[in-house]
Write a protein that binds this DNA or RNA. Structure first.
Length: 326
DNA sequence: ACAAGAATAT
DNA sequence: AATATTCTTG
């Protein structure tokens, strides 16, 4: 115990609460005697009122929170996604060197985002929030893109594009370009496409009227080859001429899933003690990651999804979610 | 050199 | 299981 046993009585008094003003040294009284202060060239600070103290206290609390707004994630806060902020999402791995080649060209712009400043406001803003608290994560050139989560809207977009192209002609780069989602990489798409094709293969040969009544299976026209389906969000459906080439470059850029990406805290998801992101059962669009390393979860709660009749969750992504929950 | 796709890693 | 990364090949 600090202070030993001499002052046990005083400490006991304090157990019933903080001392009142009468027991404390008045704010107006200098703690250092004038002579002593002069001897050490200490200039007395101006007297502070109780208001000053309270204000200072609040400032301290805010600074300890590391930001001005204690609740920046509230849905009403439109400042959530300020424009053009330096990319700060990175990872704690300083061994990850080699920035991608900086070939300056329109088709390569996405790569550049990895090492420079990301154009995707929503994405990097979410990153910033989620990563705040990481002290050593953003020294130049050490960015590591956080793990992408294929939310239902995002996957829907993917399916639209793939279906539009026809599974045979759908290749990652084209898909990526047509999806037109900022921050989405070819690697992201390639990985997802691989899985998607596995899904198709696993289910091939099964008629549409099997026990599989998932919206997923319904949403997919089993493409026989070069068949193409218009892209719903593309303003003008491709003309036959256009179909010869990779179709019309898309207008409005989506953020992931076409909606503002919201931080975990907004969605009732949190970081488990081991650093894993998880979701509460209600949103169930993601699960904790068994590997035990950090990743970011861009998920959207059900009522935040794009209102597209017929397609919401799907069984490829969320086989564990019952259809009635979708 | 680049990109697709498969294989493997986390 | 989901996604990323690496390897192989065209």
């Amino acid at each position: 115990m600090i202070g030993g046993g001499d002052n046990d009585g005083r400490m006991l008094e304090w157990e019933n609460g903080l001392p009142d003003e009468s027991e404390l040294t008045p704010l107006s009284q200098n703690l250092v005697p004038t002579e002593l202060a002069l001897a050490f060239s200490i200039t007395a600070e101006p007297c502070r009122s109780m208001g000053d103290v309270i204000r200072a206290s609040e400032m301290k609390v805010l600074s300890l929170c590391g930001r001005q707004d204690p609740f920046p994630c509230s849905s009403s806060n439109l400042e959530l996604f300020p424009s053009r902020t330096p990319l700060v999402y990175g990872e704690e791995d300083e061994h990850e060197l080699t920035p991608r080649t900086p070939a300056m060209d329109d088709t390569e712009s996405r790569k550049i985002q990895k090492i420079d400043y990301d154009e995707d406001v929503e994405v990097d803003s979410s990153m910033r929030m989620l990563n705040s608290g990481n002290a050593d994560n953003q020294s130049a050139g050490t960015f590591k893109r956080p793990r992408l989560v294929w939310t239902p809207p995002l996957h829907k977009r993917f399916v639209e594009v793939v279906t539009h192209l026809g599974v045979r002609n759908a290749v990652p780069k084209t898909i990526m370009q047509l999806m037109n989602v900022e921050g989405l990489t070819r690697e992201n798409v390639a990985s997802h496409l691989q899985k998607y094709r596995l899904y198709l293969k696993r289910n091939e040969g099964e008629g549409p009227s099997t026990s599989d009544n998932s919206l997923f299976s319904q949403s997919i026209r089993r493409s026989t080859g070069s068949e193409r389906v218009p892209l719903s969000t593309t303003p003008a459906p491709p003309t036959p001429t256009q179909l010869e080439r990779p179709p019309t470059p898309p207008p409005p850029q989506m953020s992931y899933g076409g909606l503002p990406l919201l931080p975990i805290s907004v969605l009732g998801m949190g970081l488990a003690p081991n650093g894993q992101a998880g979701v509460k059962a209600g949103n169930s669009a993601g699960v904790g990651y068994p590997g035990g390393y950090k990743f970011h979860h861009y998920n959207l709660s059900k009522d935040q999804q794009i209102d597209v009749p017929g397609i919401t969750f799907d069984s490829m992504l969320y086989p564990h979610v019952s259809n009635t929950d979708r």
